[in-house]
Design a binder for these strands. Sequence first.
DNA 1: ATTATTGACACCCGATACGTTACGGGTTAC
DNA 2: GTAACCCGTAACGTATCGGGTGTCAATAAT
Lengths: 95, 95
Amino acid sequence: MLMHNPPHPGEVLKELCIEPLGLTVTDAAKGLGVSRKTLSAILNGKSGISPEMAVRLSIAFNTSSESWLNQQSQYDLWQAERHRKELHVTQLSAA
Amino acid sequence: MLMHNPPHPGEVLKELCIEPLGLTVTDAAKGLGVSRKTLSAILNGKSGISPEMAVRLSIAFNTSSESWLNQQSQYDLWQAERHRKELHVTQLSAA
DNA sequence: ATTATTGACACCCGATACGTTACGGGTTAC
DNA sequence: GTAACCCGTAACGTATCGGGTGTCAATAAT
C-alpha cells in the first residue's frame, strides 16, 4: 500500500540524526565525506538521497542503508503517482 | 538486512510479465507508452526502473509500483555497498 | 563588532532516463 | 530470394539530477 504524503527524507535526517546529536551541517558534511552544499541540499529537500549517500548515512549514523533509500523511494513514488493519469498506458495483463 | 546479489529488475520483468503473456518487446513498449529502446534497455540491464516507469508497470501489469521500485533500490544499494570502503566516512553517532 | 553557521545562488561536470533515427542480425512466410 | 517482422544497439539529441566549487547575504553565537 502507498503511504500518503511521505515526508522528505531530508527532514527525517535532520530531525533524527543531525539535531539530536547537536551537529552542524558543516561538521556532519565533513563526517559524511561530502560537501556542505550537498548535505544542505538534502536537508532542505532540494536533493534526494542517492544510493551512495544512503551507504554514507548508514556508516556515519550506524543505521541501515535500506531504510534511507526506501524512504527516498516512497517519496519519489508518491510524486510519480500524482501524474498517473498523464501516462497513457494500456492494460497488458488480465485484471 | 541486505539481500545478496539481487537480480536486475529487468530480468524479473521479462520472466514474470513479458514472457508469460507472450508479449513482444515492441508491443509491450507500445502498451507502456515508452519507446522500444527504453524497454529493451531495462530488460537487458542497461537501465534501471525509474519511479515513473514503476507506475507505468503497475498500470500495465496490474501490480504494485512499490514492488518494482523497491527491487530497483535493493539492486542499486547492493552495487553501492560494494564501494563501502572507498567512501571515507567517520562515525558520527555512538556505536 | 567579529566570527561561525547557514541557506541560496551561480556555474561546472558526469551519469542517467528517454526520444528519434538508423543499422545489422535474426526468424518466418511468401 | 525477398519481404515482413522482431530485436539489440549505436549515434545523435533532450532533460533531470547528484555532486563539487565558489560567492554572497542573512542570521546566530561569541
